[in-house]
Design a protein around this nucleic acid. Sequence first.
DNA 1: TTTTAATTGTTGCAAATGCAACAAAAATGC
DNA 2: GCATTTTTGTTGCATTTGCAACAATTAAAA
Lengths: 150, 150
Amino acid sequence: MSDILRDIGVIARALDSIANIEFKELALTRGQYLYLVRIDENPGIIPDRLADLVKVDRTTASRAINKLVKQDFIEKNPDPDNRKIKRLFPTDKGKEAADYIRRENRHSNGVALEGLTQEEKKNLSVLLEKVKNNIEADWKAVKQGETREY
Amino acid sequence: MSDILRDIGVIARALDSIANIEFKELALTRGQYLYLVRIDENPGIIPDRLADLVKVDRTTASRAINKLVKQDFIEKNPDPDNRKIKRLFPTDKGKEAADYIRRENRHSNGVALEGLTQEEKKNLSVLLEKVKNNIEADWKAVKQGETREY
DNA sequence: TTTTAATTGTTGCAAATGCAACAAAAATGC
DNA sequence: GCATTTTTGTTGCATTTGCAACAATTAAAA
C-alpha cells in the first residue's frame, strides 16, 4: 500500500513554514493566518467549530482567536439567543489581511501544482477531499480518548 | 485552480495529532516519532539532513534529537573523518519503537485511503511526490530569507 | 597558502501548542 | 419540572517550536 502520510506531513510543514515567514509582513505570528482566512470565509463561526475545521486543539484555537481580537483582525460578538457562544467576524483590517493570505496561498498552491495537468490537479483535489473525510472520525475519536487497534 | 493546500494542512494536522497521542504509549513526546523513524531508515544520517528530510527548523530537529539520545532511542556518534558532523543511529530500543511507529502509520494510512481504488491510491502517491518536489526549493529559499512575489 | 564563505551544531529567548481541569450555559433524559 | 450530560470557553502548566546569534569546523576562492 502506497504511503501518503509522510509526504503529506512534509508538504504541510513546508507550506506552513513558508506562510508563517511571509505573513510576518502582516504582523501575523505563527498559525494566525489559518484562523483568520477561515473566519473571513465563515463569518459568525464560533471558536469550537473553527478548531474543528482546521483540526487543532480547542485551547490553541481559543488563544489564537483572542490574539486576533486584540490585534483588531477580528471581532468576537455575543450571540443574541445563546449566552454561551461567541461569534467571530473579520474587521476591515482582517478582511484585507485575508485577501493577502489568499493571494499568498494561491501562489504556493500554484508552485505546488506545477507540471501537473489540469486533470491531475482535479484528481488530486478530489482524492485529498476523500482522505480528509476518511480521517476526520479517527481524529475526533482519538482526541476524545478512544484507543485504536493496529 | 483547485486548492489543495488547505486540505493537506488539515489532513497533516489530524494525522500528526493522532500520532502524538498514540505514541505516548512509547513515552515519545510531541514530534519525536518523526525523527526516530527516519533515523531508523537512514542510519548514519546527520541532524541537518534530517531536518531537511522532514522540513523542520534545524534547531527544532537538534533539540528533538538530543532528547531522543537522552531517552536512549538513538545514538549520536562522531564521524572519523569529519570532526564537525555527528551521525545518528537507532538503539535496539529505538528500532523497536520505530517498528511500532510504522505499524501505527500503516494503520492511519489505511484509514486515510479507505474507499479509494488501487489505482487512485497509486495516483495520489505519485502526485504527492511531485508536489513535494515542487515545493522543496521554495521552502529552502524562503527559509533562507529570499522573498517571493505574488 | 590565506582569506572568505558555507556548513554544522548549539543556546537564549519569546511564543505557540496541547493536555488537565475548571466554570458556565445549554441540551438531553427522566 | 429537575437531574444529568454535553457543549463552549477559559486558564495553569509543561513542552515544543523557531528565529537570532554564536562558535567551530570544513569547503571554496583568491
